[in-house]
Write a protein that binds this DNA or RNA. Structure first.
Length: 171
DNA sequence: CCCTGATTCGC
DNA sequence: GCGAATCAGG
């Protein structure tokens, strides 16, 4: 008599609530509960009214939802051209004068410009005029030219002159 | 390429 | 009510 499909029993819902309020992500909760997908968790969370963990002050909500089953996209139409980074690190001028490569980056996936892919971090490393000039090449944040590490450096908020040395944006 | 939550809609 | 598909953003 195995239950074919354990729906959202009271215990599961309570576990969901506990994990959600405990700060676990939807995918983590889904993996913890088992048998449910991340979407299922999110959907249930919203249905329970628990959503609203991250509320945007602006009226700009999130996605507009899923498409109404229509896919008449213009195949020939080209989208907007690729936009470059708003504030590149001025090439190698901001070079890591004291980069403990032997400690910090044991094996950074540095790549040449030829090996640089779209999803790779474009953070310059080394002197562009030398043959050993490479880019970080690490996995870049989607939509951004840099990886998580270098994004923090490139997009540092201009309001942190001295004190407050905490890392930006993190739950 | 990874991830996060939000939303819609067919079931 | 449920959750996959999709979207938007990091």
């Amino acid at each position: 008599m195995m239950d074919a499909g354990p729906g959202w029993t009271n215990e599961r819902v309570e576990l969901l609530k506990r994990l959600w309020s405990d700060g676990h992500s939807a995918s983590q909760i889904a993996a913890e509960i088992g048998g449910v997908s991340r979407n299922a968790v999110i959907g249930k969370v919203h249905r329970l009214g628990l959503a609203g963990r991250v509320t945007k002050p602006n009226g700009a909500q999130a996605a507009s939802g899923r498409r109404p089953r229509a896919e008449a996209e213009s195949p020939g139409a080209s989208v907007a051209p690729t936009v470059l980074a708003p504030a590149p690190p001025a090439l190698a001028l901001i070079q890591p004068t004291s980069v403990p490569s032997a400690v910090a980056l044991p094996e950074s996936s540095r790549v040449t410009i030829m090996e640089l892919r779209d999803f790779m971090c474009r953070w310059p490393m080394g002197d562009p005029s030398t043959p050993d000039f490479r880019f970080c090449g690490d996995r870049a944040i989607t939509g951004l030219p840099y990886c998580t590490h270098h994004s923090r450096i490139a997009y540092q908020p201009a309001a942190e002159r001295k004190r407050d040395r905490k890392v930006v944006g993190f739950r």
